[in-house]
């Protein structure tokens, strides 16, 4: 009786795994085929031979390791990389840790990706310095690494596909200045003070205001962890403390949604110029309704697409530029549905 139950439970455990494996039988077969090919390509001494072997991109496998996976932004990056995979006939997987503080979890993902013997790896490091030893391992195994988004702070990467966040946030500052008439008090909510994007967007915005607009005063900069609820509370406190506040900048999706919630809850719609970053349904709706003046959008789909495209080029032995600027755009009520902007926004 005892052993019977034990066997039954173990069997169900195996069944779960079997089911999962069965979900992607084609993928399994592809991995098994791709592995020897990629290994052979990597071992080939003459670059031309490697290029010839890899030119058949059908069996090329490229894991994409991002900084997250469940946020809309990363889903848009995923969409872009999947599109590139389809266009170029390669196979990708997309994964990232659950929160942007889990540096060690991301390292483990990178480790597993290298163990799968891929043709190339796309990687957006949470902390470049912590990832260097593994990247060196990838280099030793002749696996090209392509950086994307915040990229990898090392010359091991062949290239980095990313937004110039400093320039983008400075553009937001210019828009803010124009909309509030070049004077008054403004406040900023940033997602965090430790990540590259957080630092770049804050500094890009703050420095532009300081350099070009002496009559604008940034009265408060707060950090909400990109968490909508926390950012809401912060923004509310700022709005209540500063009745004369003329403008509010939110440096990522979570931050700006917090600002929008606060403005709405305090019934200050239209009284404060709100400028955001990235997109998402709530932000798009707010811009259409006029509660948000506009936002900077990166091109997440382009980031995903260009990093996979660069990875394929790297495997083929093509030379790549040091960075691939994936661009940014200002969008507001007037151009939100235009052909140029619409494809870049995600819901």
């Amino acid at each position: 009786m005892k052993s019977l139950k034990f066997v039954a439970v173990l069997a169900s455990l195996v069944a779960i795994l079997g089911l999962l494996a069965a979900c992607s039988p084609a993928q399994q077969a592809a991995v098994q085929q791709a592995a020897p090919t990629a290994a052979a390509a990597a071992k080939a001494v003459a670059p031309t031979v490697a290029a010839a072997a890899a030119a058949k991109t059908g069996d090329m496998y490229i894991p994409v390791i991002s900084k997250g996976f469940q946020h809309q932004f990363w889903q848009a990056v995923k969409q872009g990389s999947e599109k590139a995979a389809k266009d170029l006939g390669v196979r990708i997987t997309f994964e990232g840790p659950e929160s942007e503080s889990q540096v060690d979890k991301q390292i483990e993902m990178l480790q597993a990706a290298i163990d799968k013997k891929p043709a190339a790896i796309c990687f957006a490091a949470l902390d470049s310095k912590a990832a260097i030893p593994l990247l060196e391992k990838a280099k030793a195994a002749n696996i090209p690494v392509i950086g994307f988004d915040s990229g990898v702070d090392s010359d091991i990467v062949k290239t980095t596909a990313a937004t110039d966040n400093i320039a983008a946030a400075a553009a937001a500052a210019d828009k803010m200045a124009a909309l509030i008439g070049n004077e008054g008090e403004i406040a900023v909510i940033v997602h965090d003070q430790t990540s590259r994007t957080g630092i770049d967007r804050r500094d890009g915005f703050v420095n532009r205001i300081k350099e070009k607009y002496p009559n604008i005063k940034i009265v408060d900069i707060q950090y909400g962890g990109g968490d909508q609820l926390k950012s809401t509370d912060l923004a509310k406190a700022i709005l209540q403390a500063r009745p004369n506040l003329k403008g509010f900048f939110g440096a990522n999706e979570g931050s700006i949604i917090g600002v929008l919630n606060a403005v709405k809850e305090l019934k200050k719609e239209g009284k404060v110029v709100v400028i955001g970053y990235d997109s998402g349904k709530q932000q798009i709706d707010a811009i259409k309704a006029g509660t948000e003046a506009g936002a900077i959008t990166q091109d997440p789909i382009g980031i995903g697409y260009k990093c996979v495209e660069a990875a394929v080029k790297a495997v083929k032995g093509e030379t790549l530029p040091k960075t691939i600027d994936t661009g940014f755009h200002w969008y507001d009520k007037t151009n939100i549905d235009s052909d140029q902007i619409k494809p870049l926004l995600y819901n």
Partner: peptide, 17 residues
């Protein structure tokens, strides 16, 4: 965790398992 990753099981399913 490692095995599911090596098998390229989608991440959301890894958590469920």
């Amino acid at each position: 965790t490692n095995g599911l990753r090596i098998l390229s099981v989608p991440q959301e399913w890894q958590i469920v398992v």
